[in-house]
Design a protein around this nucleic acid. Structure first.
Ligand SMILES: [Mn+2]
Ligand SMILES: [Mn+2]
Ligand SMILES: [Mn+2]
Ligand SMILES: [Mn+2]
Lengths: 223, 223
DNA sequence: TTAAAATTTTAGACAAATCTAAATAAAATA
DNA sequence: TATTTTATTTAGATTTGTCTAAAATTTTAA
């Protein structure tokens, strides 16, 4: 299994969760920042290897085999990210890029030893679940901050965008996993949100709010 | 810099130490288990990038740039091997293969953080020196066991062959870094050697003895 | 010092992964 | 429903790294 193939499988896995039908060529091209033509080629290759089911013009879904491999790559990615934060004291904004490389290292013994060393962590530095050695992981209860309403109280449980650019902004605003907030205001016009975090008032655009996952603590005014 | 290019640089670095002239195409092909034609192609590419000096039919030597990069790859390789043994409790026979993959991960921050976590180790699990962040490393004083004589006493300081197959044999014979031995006998006919290690008598072929590095403790009979 | 042998390079091909441009199919719209 | 627009696939090219077979060069040996 090549790096490119693994990246496609991982991408299809992500996009499958949101899509109802098969994952479309253009969705994959978008996510991987490649051209549709390249994706079309690769989908045919993955189909021939029975890692996906693919009907021309109707997108792809993972086979049992394909899904297992995608989950393995995600397991590797998230364990490496956890290692970088827990053992090497990287910031959560620095780990994704390196993990994109490390996730392709092939050694079952290595990844299971890492898992053990880290104490079998259940979530990664961005709040995403880490599949165990059997590929099992629990779905984390969460919703987008952008879908919340005024006067709700909640806590940050994850981020959708794990890019350095985005996470640095969150750091600057003192927003981390576990941070508790109260929604002071939600602007109908542009969807921007104003939070209260530890007595500070913090403004977030709609775009930012739709890249932050939260868990609702209360839907009542607790002020 | 691609994986392949890094592997070539590393190989040329190794072979340069033994060669007097430039490193030959066939020596590289041998070491990397590829064809001379492939090596020829790659040497021209590396020369164009000014990583090696290359004159057709007369082999290659590293430029300043090329040498620096080779040393960086070796630093990564040996630090990862050390990590695997020290932190993940791999045996010294299990680490080389995985390190062949890990040595290509590009992140200066990662490798320097690993170095720090490991306490800036000076030698790897096979007794080879680990270059520091500036590319400096001390040459280890050693000679091949095959070049020693009867009645000498010495200690194991390294191995030339780091393959799993070879190291498993050493494990079985209880030969490790730091092991002290006395040479009971050296057979003129086939170069085989018989050692005394902690009162056990251990036989080694010429081939094995020429893959073990040692430091002489005494050239006198200490029996 | 010339001929044979070994080494090295070149030529041409191939697989993987990507691209642009053109063709084709599906979806949206009039 | 017919036409236009959008999405997808195919065709053909490119880069990287490899191969085999043939040509060129160097080395060895007669
Ligand atoms: Mn990530
Ligand atoms: Mn993550
Ligand atoms: Mn090694
Ligand atoms: Mn080593």
């Amino acid at each position: 299994m090549t790096f490119a193939e693994e990246n496609y499988l991982k991408t299809i896995f992500y996009l499958e969760q949101e899509a109802t039908e098969g994952v479309s060529t253009s969705a994959i091209a978008d996510y991987l920042d490649t051209r549709a033509a390249s994706v079309s080629d690769m989908l045919q290759k993955l189909a021939k290897k029975e890692l996906i089911e693919y009907k021309k013009y109707y997108g792809a879904i993972l086979t049992h085999n394909g899904r297992n491999h995608a989950i393995l790559v995600i397991r590797r990615h998230r364990l490496w990210e956890t290692f970088l934060v827990e053992k090497l004291h990287f910031g959560w904004e620095e780990v994704h890029e390196v993990a994109e490389q490390l996730e392709h290292i092939k050694s079952e013994k290595l990844i299971n030893a890492m898992d053990k060393m880290l104490g079998y962590p259940k979530i990664d530095p961005h709040g995403d679940p880490i599949p165990d050695a059997n590929g099992n992981f629990t779905k984390i209860e969460k919703r987008l901050l952008a879908d919340c309403e005024e006067k709700w109280t909640g806590t940050i449980v994850g981020v959708k965008d794990t890019s350095s650019d985005f996470l640095k902004i969150l750091d600057r605003k003192q927003i981390n996993l576990g941070t508790v907030f109260y929604i002071l205001n939600k602007e109908k016009y542009d969807g921007s949100i104003r939070l209260k975090i530890e007595d500070e008032s913090i403004a977030l655009s709609q775009k930012m709010a739709s890249n932050i996952y939260i868990k609702v603590i209360s839907m009542q005014n607790s002020e």
